[in-house]
């Protein structure tokens, strides 16, 4: 869609970035890791993660994956906690606008590549879309087994009993499986994988998703992938089956049910509401005329207004 001519002049003055910041050799190296990851679903492929012009924890892994797969005709959507307008999403979107000059969007349906920090969009993804995750800690066994040499061996030998020890502890201490995010899954009946740090609410969406899922961990230098329509099972016990979070109220702004909600504090007098964490989904519903119980509240309406740029900061 766009070529370098549309990159703002200020960039040209400082010398030009290669398309999408990374040099072509690096992108090729990352693509090789991605291909290997797709060939072995759920397997963590080591890669030579680069220093990126942003701190670790900001999504350096996801940014590298996106940079490696991005083409000029792609349309990019960046979300952080489901929202398009939080600091992380705005900064990373700006990064690719500046270095790749690609089209960006807030609309899930329009995007060809969606980079996300926590959430999977509520809208069902299609085969022609790619979902890129920013992963802080790719190793699901890390907190149980600190040695990398040992965890690699455990993956190789499918030695995953320890994962259930963690779930056992949850039930013993809380009466139910209290892990709510980074909930371990088994991919294609083989590798245990950490879909971190998505809430377990999104785990069912990972299963047999039509879109390709790529996971990049910059600091930990790992890439893994789930090809489209791959079986992904959340670990559980026979007598304590996997469950997702339930919300007792619909979204305050758009009235959506069975979606993941964020609690938003409206004022300092205890005013609060629960709204869709997926801001694009919420806005689209409101545009279609769905109204939630809080929609008329002026304070609440201010929260929901993201597309016009009048966001709450």
């Amino acid at each position: 869609m766009t070529d370098t001519a549309q990159i703002p002049d200020s960039v040209h003055e400082q010398g030009e970035y290669n398309f999408a910041y990374l040099d072509e050799q690096t992108k090729r190296m990352i693509r090789r890791a991605i291909l290997k990851g797709i060939a072995i679903p759920g397997y963590q492929v080591p890669f030579a993660s680069r220093e990126m012009p942003m701190p670790y924890g900001w999504g350096t892994g996801g940014v590298q994956v996106t940079a490696a797969i991005l083409g000029k005709s792609d349309c990019l959507k960046m979300i952080d906690q489901g929202s398009d307008d939080t600091t992380n999403a705005v900064s990373l979107r700006g990064f690719f606008e500046k270095t790749a000059g690609v089209r960006t969007t807030c609309e899930t349906a329009e995007a060809t590549i969606i980079q996300t920090r926590h959430r999977i969009p509520e809208k069902t993804l299609r085969e022609d879309q790619i979902l890129v995750f920013q992963v802080p800690i790719p190793e699901p066994l890390r907190y149980l087994e600190p040695r990398e040499t040992e965890t690699r061996k455990m993956h190789a030998l499918e030695d995953y009993g320890l994962m259930h020890v963690k779930l056992y502890e949850d039930i013993a201490k809380n009466g139910h499986i209290a892990t709510t995010y980074a909930y371990p899954v088994k991919v294609n009946d083989r590798y245990v994988m950490d879909p971190s740090p998505t809430p377990k609410f999104d785990n069912p969406k990972i299963d047999r998703m039509a879109a390709l899922q790529l996971y990049g961990a910059g600091r930990e230098k790992r890439i893994y992938a789930i090809p489209p329509y791959t079986k992904v099972k959340s670990l559980d016990f026979e007598d304590y089956p996997f469950e997702i979070q339930q919300f007792d109220k619909p979204c305050g702004l758009c009235g959506a049910e069975n979606v993941y909600l964020d609690e938003v504090i409206l004022d300092d007098k205890g005013g609060r509401m629960f709204v869709c964490s997926d801001s694009d989904y919420c806005e689209e519903r409101r545009a279609d005329g769905h109204l939630g119980p809080m929609a008329a509240d002026p304070a609440a309406a201010r929260v929901g207004n993201t597309k016009t740029g009048e966001t709450v900061r």
Partner: peptide, 13 residues
């Protein structure tokens, strides 16, 4: 319970 879970026990009770 760890050894039991390692050899495939999946019933918490």
């Amino acid at each position: 319970g760890e050894r039991l879970m390692a050899v495939g026990a999946r019933h918490y009770g």
